[in-house]
């Protein structure tokens, strides 16, 4: 392959950003996410240990399940003793908790926030609604399976799950992180086209860049 050919392929790989108006397309990034390999086994193991002890969750209550996060922060359940802290901005957060049903309007914001998080990033899907739609399985406005739109690491079943169940879910997530199984960020980069296709299928007014940095 000569250099010209590689450039052509790179041009084809660029995102079209078709949802944006023509004059704004230059303002946004057109690169797609790339996979980032882990470090060597022992160093990555150490980092994963630190990551699992310091989980910063995005304080974005996407549904009724966000109600269960409040008691988790207060003195009764006290998540800070596990090193879990809320972070109000996606740039700094590493865990995204989808609190229950995600309507189409919300999933647009969820995708945007998820893409703005800096990896390695983890997703906890809370409640039955994220698993198979739950009691909203026949709703015109809420999605049924979250894992078609963003990669999910841990599901917590229930409607609603109690804060204890949430803590159990967090502990499960920690085990998975320490075992090096939480590669949602790379999964998203690998299956990017598939995720985008699913997202665009339900988000009809796609007026944002294809990949939000």
């Amino acid at each position: 392959m000569n250099k010209k050919h590689i450039n052509e392929i790179e041009d084809q790989m660029k995102l079209a950003n078709e949802g944006l108006p023509e004059k704004e397309r230059g303002l946004f990034a057109d690169a797609r996410p790339t996979t980032v390999d882990a470090f060597n086994k022992y160093y990555e193991g150490f980092l994963n240990w630190a990551r699992s002890r310091s989980l910063w969750m995005l304080a974005f209550g996407t549904g009724c399940g966000a109600t269960e996060l409040r008691p988790l922060m207060t003195s009764r359940y006290d998540m800070s003793r596990y090193g879990i802290a809320p972070r109000p901005t996606p740039r700094q957060a590493s865990v995204f908790i989808i609190g229950g049903y995600a309507s189409i309007k919300t999933i647009k914001r969820i995708v945007r926030s998820y893409e703005q998080m800096q990896g390695p990033k983890y997703v906890i899907a809370l409640g039955s609604c994220t698993i198979n739609g739950g009691m909203y399985f026949d709703s015109y406005n809420t999605i049924n399976r979250l894992d078609y739109y963003i990669p999910v690491d841990v599901y917590i079943a229930g409607c609603m799950p109690r804060p204890e169940a949430l803590i159990a879910g967090f502990n499960r997530l920690k085990e998975k992180i320490r075992a090096g199984e939480c590669e949602g960020m790379n999964e998203y980069a690998e299956k990017f086209d598939w995720f985008k296709k699913n997202q665009k299928q339900i988000i009809k007014n796609w007026n944002m860049p294809d990949y939000n940095w």
């Binding site: 309507s103 189409i104 309007k105 647009k108 698993i131 198979n132 739609g133 399985f137 026949d138 709703s139 015109y140 406005n141 809420t142 999605i143 049924n144 399976r145 078609y148 699913n198 299928q201 339900i202 988000i203 009809k204 007014n205 796609w206």
Partner: peptide
């Protein structure tokens, strides 16, 4: 609340939400 809705208004009773849901979202 519905951004970019293309079907008939969803709260009208002749709108079949289950059918729409089956068609649009992925069932587990």
């Amino acid at each position: 609340v519905l951004e970019g809705w293309e079907e008939m208004p969803p709260m009208r009773r002749d709108f079949d939400t289950l059918e729409y849901s089956d068609k649009t979202f992925y069932q587990r």
